[in-house]
Design a protein around this nucleic acid. Structure first.
Length: 767
RNA sequence: GGGUCGGUGGCGGAAUGGCAGACGCAGCGGACUUAAAAUCCGCCGAGGCAACUCUUGUGGGUUCGAAUCCCACCCGACCUACCA
């Protein structure tokens, strides 16, 4: 008789012991293969929710499993700690965002420890720590030196009343008004810092073939990068200005009946005639208030206005009208298109609405040449018509032929376009890593010297209700001497996008806060080389699907840029990626406070212990699927642990009364294997029972049990006999029984003879 | 419109060409108990007295044999979308 299973007591006990004995401390034993397992670092929101538990439990179980299989496992944790919520909290409470952030981190650490995961706590990276963002700034500086970082005017949402830039989530409603004062937001061009991620577009696309990532993520990234192949063709306005358009269908050039410019296009004013000036100006003003996302709403009816101007189509000399419309984006291609309504859905809709001509230049798959009821955009079937020298050319392959012809005639060139834009990293916010740049009236843009990093965030920042970054008001931060000429200069007051800081935490983890307190140099290696060579790259990365495009694309870009700078020697930061599914509320809906279906994991840990919660989450179903939280099913896992406890501690209620003393060693061996195999999922109870069994070293440092296949060999096997695919009888025979013997025996079976009556064997499985 | 994943008992799910429904939940019966909880044992897709028959979203196909492979369709979830 012994004590009942009491998870609360044993879990706290073992967490303390493990920490004291340092059993989860990362080793670098060269004799063992390494395994770098990483989960996306959490944002310190202040509470560990079901999603965190579901992300970390299987990651931890897998890491433990690998360790028991003889790997050196590195399994770090940390916090992606910059971001807007801290600033909002600061404005609300008048406290510094650092205070809120670090308090939340402290709270989440306690919650995380309750999970009993094998995290390498001594590698806990916090991106808001100056020793971390010192390196974020060092990377910025390297990118600046390499020409990867550059400054450009880019549109931001601007509130003219508050006199400040707004983040996307601060712009509300269909009319796009300011969150605080309700004033309609306008677009404003500000000089901002960007990274040339587009230089890597092809590589980011093509290298996906060499990484083991879910198709979904690859598909999303593929679409996000959006490579399309076509041609740039130069039209000329009446005024003689070249007007370049991008098209993927140069084979339809002869069907262009009008042109459309983005409202922001540079030639709009010069092509607009006097009588259309006011209409054009009004349309431009309206378009300026919407961002591209809104303009891109697919179901929105197309609008536009005629400019009064015309341009000449280079392939046939026709003068066609120029319109402006917000369905053409300034940020894609050249911001101008030729409109071929007969063979493009959008152009068709626009032409129909504004009664513009539609000219067919591709026959239907059946050779049809008549008027169209809808656009025909097929690229495989049909032939070119009304297209001068190309009449009769089959559509398939026509694009290449026309591009060649355009190039020969000097009318256009083959071109590739991407949806992907350069990465805008400037944020007009305080709680981020300051961009290490100084503006000097004499020397211009001057990067902060490497030795002077980090540029520290002031700890006495004052949050005013204007919403503008406190860095702008902070004189000590803002006004500096120019590092080059020593004259009066100003610091950049924008901070970096938090995605910048999360793009390299897999490297930060390797040797945390490397060169702490030391001045940096341009040719530093940002982590301990020996450790980096051993651990990098990440073997298994896990996290939510919501990062399919932004974070994952950025971190891949970051690694490729570092490779070009000679810092790393591989192309991809994470070899394998796995996305966990989502745990829904008991009602099968996404958990939300408004629905009142939020499950607080702490309550279940209090009631059943962490091992039960871990086990429940592990067995809920396939990890990438998730599913609803089942209030009852968790009981089953808890019962299982109680039974295991009873069996091992000889609870009379559980003890098998028929157990023969002769098989005690076998029984003990079975218990031993059971505990070893439970260890990755149920780390605490297996450790406790492992010690109850008389072991003194940790169960987690043992090797996974190996099966002796010879001993597991069956003396007899059941062979199922099917007639016409239906099970009719069974044979019990010795393993390895010869096929001809089996066949003979099978045919002799009573059930089989009955079903075979009057029939011959046509074919059999041929075993 | 494009992409990805999925559809199997009352429920979560197993089985990836060879005994469909492992395991768990719920349910039913029994043991223990004054009683209940807990625990333990048994039953648990549908029909049929039985032999058997039917059953993996629907319809076809391949195969000795299909939840699994192929074709067409229906339904659902998530992501994405005026990208020229």
């Amino acid at each position: 008789m012994s004590e009942r299973y009491n998870p609360a007591a044993i879990e706290t006990k073992w967490q303390t012991v493990w920490e004291e004995q340092g059993i989860d401390k990362t080793q670098m034993d060269e004799g063992k293969p390494k395994w770098y397992a990483l989960t996306m670092l959490p944002y310190p929101s202040g509470d560990l929710h079901t999603g965190h538990w579901y992300a970390y439990t299987p990651s931890d179980a897998a890491a433990r499993f690998k360790r028991m299989h003889g790997y050196n496992v590195f399994f770090p944790i940390g916090f992606d700690a910059f971001g807007l919520p801290a600033e909002n909290a600061a404005i609300k409470r008048g406290a510094h965002p650092a205070q809120w952030t670090w308090a939340n981190i402290a709270r989440m650490r306690t919650q995380l420890r309750r999970m009993g995961a094998m995290w390498a706590w001594d590698s806990e990276a916090v991106s808001a720590d100056p020793e971390y963002y010192k390196w974020s700034q060092w990377f910025f500086r390297k990118f600046y030196d390499a020409g990867i970082a550059y400054r450009e005017y880019a549109p931001v949402d601007w509130c003219p009343t508050c006199n400040t830039t707004l983040a996307r989530e601060q712009v509300w409603g269909d009319d796009r008004h300011c969150e605080r004062c309700g004033t309609p937001v306008i677009k404003k061009n500000l000089e901002q810092w960007k990274f040339r991620i587009t230089n890597y577009a092809d590589e980011l696309l093509d290298d996906m073939a060499q990484i083991d990532w879910p198709e979904r993520v690859k598909g999303d990234a593929d679409q996000w990068i959006g490579r399309s192949i076509g041609a740039e063709v130069t039209f000329h306005t009446e005024q003689g200005d070249p007007l370049v358009i991008f098209t993927t269908r140069p084979d339809t050039l002869w069907g262009a009946t009008f042109m459309v410019l983005a409202p922001e296009h540079a030639l709009v004013d010069s092509v607009t005639t006097v009588e259309y000036r006011s209409a054009v100006a009004a349309y431009k003003a309206q378009a300026a208030r919407m961002d591209e996302i809104e303009r891109g709403a697919a179901d929105k009816e197309k609008t536009g206005v005629f400019t009064g101007g015309f341009a000449r189509n280079p392939v046939n000399g026709e003068m066609i009208p120029i319109w402006i419309a917000d369905y053409v984006m300034m940020g894609y291609g050249t911001g101008a298109i030729m409109a071929v309504p007969a063979h493009d859905e959008r152009d068709f809709a626009f032409a129909t609405k504004y009664q513009l001509p539609i000219r067919r230049v591709i026959t239907g798959p059946d050779g049809a040449t008549g008027p169209l009821a809808e656009a025909y955009a097929g690229k495989e079937d049909g032939a070119m018509i009304n297209s001068g020298p190309f009449d009769g050319t089959p559509v398939e392959g026509a694009v290449t032929k026309v591009i060649q012809w355009l190039e020969e005639k000097n009318l256009g060139v083959g071109a590739v376009n991407y949806r992907l834009r350069d990465w805008l990293i400037s944020r007009q916010r305080m709680w981020g890593a300051p961009i290490p740049i100084i503006y000097c009236p004499t020397c211009g843009v001057v990067p902060v010297p490497y030795e002077e990093l980090p540029v520290l965030l002031p700890d006495d920042a004052e949050f005013r209700p204007t919403g503008e970054s406190p860095l702008k008001y902070h004189e000590g931060f803002r006004y500096v001497k120019c590092p080059t000429c020593g004259g009066d200069a100003e610091r950049e007051t924008d901070t970096m996008d938090t995605f910048m800081c999360s793009s390299w935490y897999q490297y930060a983890d390797v040797s945390l806060y490397w060169k702490k307190g030391e001045p940096l140099k341009a040719d530093d290696l940002p982590w301990d080389k020996e450790k980096g060579d051993y651990w990098l790259p990440v073997d298994q990365y896990t996290g939510g699907i919501e990062h399919a495009t932004m974070h994952l694309l950025y971190t891949r870009f970051f690694t490729k840029a570092l490779r070009d700078l000679g810092v790393v020697n591989f192309d991809e930061p994470m070899q394998r990626l796995f996305n966990q599914g989502m745990i829904l509320g008991p009602d099968g809906e996404k958990m939300s406070k408004s629905r009142g279906n939020v499950i607080n994991p702490d309550e279940f840990v209090d009631r059943y212990g962490a091992d039960t919660v871990r086990g429940y989450l592990m067995f809920i179903g396939p990890w990438d699927m998730g599913g609803p939280w089942d209030m009852n099913a968790i009981e089953g896992v808890h019962r299982f642990l109680h039974r295991v406890w009873g069996v091992v501690t000889d609870d009379p209620q559980m003890t098998n009364p028929t157990l023969d003393p002769n098989i005690t060693p076998v029984w003990n061996q079975a218990i031993r294997s059971l505990l070893l195999m439970m260890a990755p999922i149920f780390p605490h109870i297996s450790e406790e029972l492992w010690h109850v069994e008389g072991n003194t070293s940790s169960v987690h440092l043992q090797r996974w049990p190996e099966a002796d296949l010879e001993k597991a060999q069956e003396d007899e096997v059941v062979v199922v006999v099917q007639v016409n695919g239906k099970v009719r009888d069974k044979l019990t025979v010795a393993p390895g029984t010869d096929a001809t013997v089996l066949r003979k025996q099978a045919l002799a079976l009573e059930n089989v003879t009955r079903w075979m009556a009057g029939k011959q064997v046509q074919r059999d499985c041929g075993a």
